[in-house]
Measured scan of single mutants.
Amino acid sequence: KMTIRVKGKELARRIAKEMKDRNLKVEIHEHGDEVILEIE
């Protein structure tokens, strides 16, 4: 399990899509400006 902190929703969406393309499970937690992606 891996956690990534990202500034900006646009970048977070791009990373999430990339991870889904690799068949990984992604959970997205938004905290205002910061987005936390949990990847399994």
Rank of each mutant, 00 (worst) to 15 (best):
D21P: 00
I4A: 03
R22N: 08
E34M: 14
A16Q: 04
I39D: 01
E10L: 05
K7L: 11
L37F: 06
A16G: 03
H29F: 14
R14Q: 14
D33V: 06
H31D: 14
K25W: 09
E18N: 08
E30P: 04
R5S: 11
E34H: 12
R13P: 03
K17Q: 13
T3E: 12
T3Y: 09
D21H: 05
R5W: 04
T3L: 12
L24A: 03
K9A: 10
I4E: 06
R13T: 13
T3H: 11
R13C: 15
E27D: 09
K7V: 11
V6N: 01
E27K: 13
A12L: 03
R22Y: 04
M2F: 07
R22K: 10
E30A: 10
G32M: 06
I36Q: 03
K9M: 14
D21N: 09
E30V: 13
I15E: 01
N23E: 06
R5C: 15
I39E: 01
R13N: 14
D33W: 05
I36H: 05
I39S: 01
G8E: 11
E30C: 15
K25I: 11
I4C: 14
H29C: 15
H31A: 12
I15Y: 01
I36Y: 10
M19R: 01
N23K: 08
G8R: 04
L11T: 10
M2A: 12
K1N: 12
D33E: 12
D21T: 07
E27R: 13
I4L: 03
V26R: 00
E27Y: 11
D33K: 06
A16R: 02
K7S: 06
G32C: 13
H31L: 14
V26L: 04
M19V: 03
R22H: 09
I36T: 07
D33T: 07
M19E: 01
K20P: 01
K1G: 14
E40A: 11
E18G: 08
R14W: 05
E30K: 06
E27Q: 12
L37E: 00
R13Y: 09
K9D: 07
E40P: 05
R13W: 05
R14D: 07
D33I: 06
V35W: 15
E40G: 12
K20Q: 14
E30Q: 09
R5D: 05
I39G: 01
I36G: 00
H29R: 12
I28S: 04
D33H: 06
I15G: 01
K17I: 08
M19K: 01
E40F: 15
E38A: 06
A16S: 04
T3W: 06
E34S: 08
E18S: 10
E18V: 12
K25Q: 08
H29A: 05
I36F: 10
K9G: 07
G8F: 06
R22M: 10
